[in-house]
Write a protein that binds this DNA or RNA. Sequence first.
DNA 1: CCAGACGTTGTT
DNA 2: GTCTGG
DNA 3: CCAGACGTTGTT
DNA 4: GTCTGG
Length: 201
Amino acid sequence: MCGRAATAPVLSWNEYYQVMGFDLWLNFKPSYNVTPTQPLPCIRVEDGQRSAFVAKWGLIPSWAKDPKIGAQCSQARSDTVAEKPAFRAAFKKRCCLVAVTGFYEWDQHHIVKGRPKQPYYFTLQDGRPMTFAGLWESWVSPEQETIETCTIITCGPNEIMEPLHDRLPVILPSNLWDVWLDPGMDATVAGLVKDEFHTRQ
DNA sequence: CCAGACGTTGTT
DNA sequence: GTCTGG
DNA sequence: CCAGACGTTGTT
DNA sequence: GTCTGG
């Protein structure tokens, strides 16, 4: 992973879809700056098969009366996600991958360090898309409209992020995708939260 | 018992 | 849905 | 987090 | 200044 002053992603979405192994995804409109409540491309396992879906960023728990809570549930801390009422149900049964080409993070220490106030764009060093550990949820509105949402897991910073910011999305290497997606592997998943989340990528 | 929260971030 | 605070 | 708004009405 | 929406 590396950070640079914010610029455009390095992979086209067509290339991205190919790398991720999915067909072109007609109902997702790529964006250079996704914000909470906007759609993100996700991957989950249904009947033992990976499938792609689009979910609004910002998890709305199934019990929510007001969907606005979703905007505040755009991230879930790795150290508490298993217990928090808003996330624990999804954590047990609805882990997903969130697929992006990169992400922005603002410089938390710009004033103290005398740096310009600006966001940085982070990608993997080789420019491949990256895959966040996420959760998804399904919420039914009073009008019986179903809304699928997602959140991303965050952990502490690695050595690259640390000078800029104290949080970092959990980026799963490809050998952990199936582990994270397996709904039957609670113990392993819990282990991931405690251990792998804090390793460096 | 009922009512209300349920989350993250930041903080010169 | 489930927990906490009053 | 940042960006952008920042009002009024009504009241089974 | 502070809240809301993205």
